[in-house]
């Protein structure tokens, strides 16, 4: 069966069409749905298997990145989200979507009532940066990274991507549950320095999943590396079979096969 994918749009989403294409390419039946349709009941989460919160600047990131959309999920769509997750379905948030997931309380654990324990804050460089980064893919329960090679190359493009935790306990729990899915790395997979870690994230964390592995949030953009011509070095190294990002979306689709 082709899973139905809901790519959630809101004012200021701007990677929605890219994520839509990535899922279509991976064999899903993807639809772009505005958050207002979920709020007014025209569309229901239960009709979908995968929820995508794409990148962008929802509501301008005016208060802080992703905050307004996070509050809409948290205060207006909580029941639907809880039921969705409980039904063994998948959620992925990319860039702004990752910011939304942590601020709404879907990561590091689906708990919409608990105080926020991790966040994505201003880059240490103090500015927006677009650059390609190497990512170490750790062993984790994450559904999206099953059998993905150990080092991948994706672009980041953000001003607020520095991953920080409230306290050591939160960090220990992330490690213990193997929730740290992606870490920024040097080109050889080793310890990164700036700009290999582009934002100053704690433990070089670029993406985490929840303990079930069914909710993934990451700052880098796998949907911007679907085609081999996206790779910055293809004119040097030749064209690969496909981009490093495809596997993420294919894994999600295959979860429902």
């Amino acid at each position: 069966m082709k899973p139905n994918v809901l790519v959630l749009r809101a004012a200021g989403s701007n990677c929605d069409q890219d994520a839509h294409f990535a899922f279509q390419y991976a064999g899903a039946n993807a639809q772009l749905i505005h958050v207002n349709r979920l709020l007014d009941g025209d569309a229901r989460l239960q009709d979908f298997q995968i929820l995508v919160i794409p990148g962008g600047f929802t509501y301008g990131d005016d208060i802080s990145a992703g905050k307004i959309l996070a509050n809409q999920l948290k205060y207006k769509l909580a029941d639907q989200l809880l039921a969705f997750h409980a039904a063994d379905k998948l959620i992925i948030g990319i860039c702004n979507g990752f910011q939304v997931l942590v601020k709404a309380g879907l990561l590091p654990q689906m708990d919409l009532k608990a105080p926020q324990s991790v966040t994505l804050t201003n880059n240490d460089s103090g500015k927006f940066e677009d650059r390609w980064v190497y990512l170490k893919v750790n062993k984790s329960p994450c559904v999206f990274t099953k059998n993905v090679k150990s080092l991948v190359y994706y672009p980041v493009a953000h001003a607020e991507g520095k991953f920080v935790v409230r306290d050591d306990q939160v960090l220990n729990l992330l490690k213990q549950n193997r929730q740290i899915v992606f870490q920024y790395a040097a080109p050889d997979g080793g310890q990164p320095v700036y700009p290999q870690n582009p934002n100053g994230s704690m433990l070089d964390i670029a993406g985490i999943c929840d303990a079930t592995g069914r909710i993934l949030g990451l700052m880098p953009h796998p949907e911007r590396h679907i085609d081999p011509t996206n790779h910055p070095h293809w004119t040097r190294e030749g064209l690969a079979q496909e981009g490093d990002g495809v596997a993420i979306f294919r894994n999600a689709v295959n979860y429902f096969r």
């Binding site: 927006f128 940066e129 677009d130 493009a157 949907e223």
Partner: peptide, 22 residues
């Protein structure tokens, strides 16, 4: 150049910054 998103819309095939270290 770095402060501009030049990858969004996912169609970038040759970038403003190129080479082994981009």
């Amino acid at each position: 150049i770095r402060q501009y998103d030049h990858e969004v819309q996912a169609g970038s095939a040759l970038k403003p910054l190129v080479g082994v270290e981009n």
